[in-house]
Deep mutational scan, measured.
Amino acid sequence: HESKLSILMDMFPAISKSKLQVHLLENNNDLDLTIGLLL
């Protein structure tokens, strides 16, 4: 999960990174759901 998140972070600009982190917190680190929201 950690490395997947790092790769994902590299793919998005800074603003999207903050949104990603907020979504991860709100969704209890449900990375798949977060990716779904961003794609």
Rank of each mutant, 00 (worst) to 15 (best):
H1P: 14
H1R: 15
H1M: 15
H1G: 15
H1A: 15
H1L: 15
E2A: 08
E2G: 08
E2T: 15
E2V: 06
E2W: 04
E2P: 11
E2N: 15
E2I: 15
E2D: 08
S3E: 08
S3Q: 10
S3H: 12
S3M: 11
K4A: 08
K4Q: 11
K4V: 04
K4S: 12
K4C: 10
K4M: 15
K4T: 11
K4E: 12
K4P: 07
K4W: 03
K4G: 06
K4D: 14
L5E: 02
L5H: 00
L5N: 02
L5V: 12
L5R: 00
L5W: 01
L5G: 01
L5C: 05
L5P: 02
S6P: 04
S6T: 12
S6L: 09
S6G: 10
S6Q: 12
S6W: 03
S6C: 15
S6A: 13
I7C: 15
I7R: 10
I7D: 15
I7P: 02
I7K: 14
I7G: 03
I7F: 05
I7E: 07
I7A: 14
I7L: 11
L8G: 00
L8W: 00
L8Q: 00
L8V: 03
L8K: 00
L8T: 02
L8F: 02
M9P: 00
M9R: 11
M9I: 14
M9V: 12
M9L: 14
M9S: 12
M9C: 07
M9A: 11
M9D: 06
D10L: 04
D10C: 08
D10P: 03
D10Y: 15
D10T: 04
D10N: 09
M11H: 05
M11S: 04
M11Q: 09
M11L: 06
M11T: 10
M11W: 04
M11R: 14
M11N: 06
M11P: 02
F12W: 03
F12D: 00
F12M: 03
F12E: 01
F12L: 02
F12P: 03
P13T: 01
P13S: 01
P13A: 03
P13I: 01
P13K: 01
P13V: 00
P13G: 01
P13H: 00
P13Q: 02
P13M: 02
P13F: 01
P13L: 01
P13D: 01
P13E: 04
P13R: 00
A14P: 04
A14S: 14
A14E: 14
A14L: 10
A14M: 08
A14Q: 12
A14G: 12
A14W: 11
A14D: 08
I15R: 04
I15V: 08
I15S: 06
I15D: 05
I15Q: 09
I15P: 00
I15W: 11
S16F: 11
S16T: 06
S16A: 11
S16R: 07
S16V: 05
S16M: 04
S16N: 06
S16P: 13
S16C: 08
S16G: 06
S16H: 15
K17M: 05
K17N: 04
K17W: 03
K17R: 10
K17A: 07
K17D: 05
S18T: 12
S18A: 10
S18P: 06
S18G: 09
S18L: 09
S18Y: 09
S18H: 10
S18K: 11
S18F: 13
S18V: 15
S18W: 06
S18E: 13
K19R: 12
K19T: 12
K19A: 10
K19H: 07
K19E: 10
K19W: 06
K19G: 05
K19P: 01
K19N: 14
K19Q: 11
L20R: 01
L20I: 15
L20C: 10
L20A: 06
L20Q: 02
Q21V: 08
Q21C: 10
Q21I: 15
Q21W: 04
Q21T: 08
Q21L: 06
Q21G: 07
Q21R: 09
V22C: 14
V22K: 13
V22Q: 13
V22D: 10
V22S: 10
V22W: 07
V22M: 12
V22L: 09
V22G: 10
H23A: 10
H23W: 05
H23C: 06
H23S: 11
H23D: 03
H23L: 07
H23T: 10
H23Y: 07
H23V: 07
H23E: 07
L24V: 01
L24A: 01
L24W: 00
L24Q: 00
L24R: 01
L24S: 00
L24K: 02
L24E: 01
L24P: 00
L24G: 00
L24Y: 03
L25S: 11
L25Q: 14
L25G: 12
L25E: 13
E26K: 09
E26V: 05
E26N: 15
E26S: 08
E26Q: 07
E26G: 08
N27R: 06
N27S: 07
N27P: 00
N27F: 03
N27I: 03
N27E: 07
N27V: 04
N27M: 06
N28W: 03
N28C: 05
N28R: 09
N28E: 12
N28D: 13
N28V: 03
N28L: 08
N28Y: 03
N28A: 11
N28H: 07
N28T: 04
N29S: 10
N29M: 12
N29P: 05
N29K: 04
N29D: 09
N29H: 08
N29Q: 13
N29R: 06
N29W: 13
N29T: 04
D30L: 02
D30S: 06
D30E: 06
D30T: 01
D30Y: 15
L31A: 04
L31H: 02
L31E: 02
L31Q: 03
L31T: 04
L31M: 06
L31V: 15
L31S: 01
L31K: 02
L31G: 00
D32M: 05
D32F: 03
D32A: 08
D32Y: 02
D32G: 09
D32Q: 13
D32P: 06
D32T: 06
L33F: 05
L33W: 04
L33R: 14
L33P: 12
L33M: 12
L33Y: 12
L33T: 12
L33N: 14
L33G: 13
T34K: 01
T34M: 00
T34R: 00
T34L: 02
T34A: 09
I35E: 07
I35A: 11
I35C: 08
I35M: 10
I35K: 14
I35W: 03
I35D: 01
I35F: 02
G36V: 04
G36W: 03
G36P: 10
G36T: 12
G36R: 13
G36D: 13
G36Y: 03
G36S: 14
G36M: 05
L37D: 11
L37Y: 12
L37S: 13
L37T: 14
L37K: 13
L37R: 14
L37H: 11
L37W: 08
L38W: 00
L38V: 05
L38R: 01
L38A: 04
L38D: 09
L38Q: 02
L38N: 03
L39Q: 15
L39T: 14
L39Y: 12
L39F: 09
L39R: 15
L39K: 15
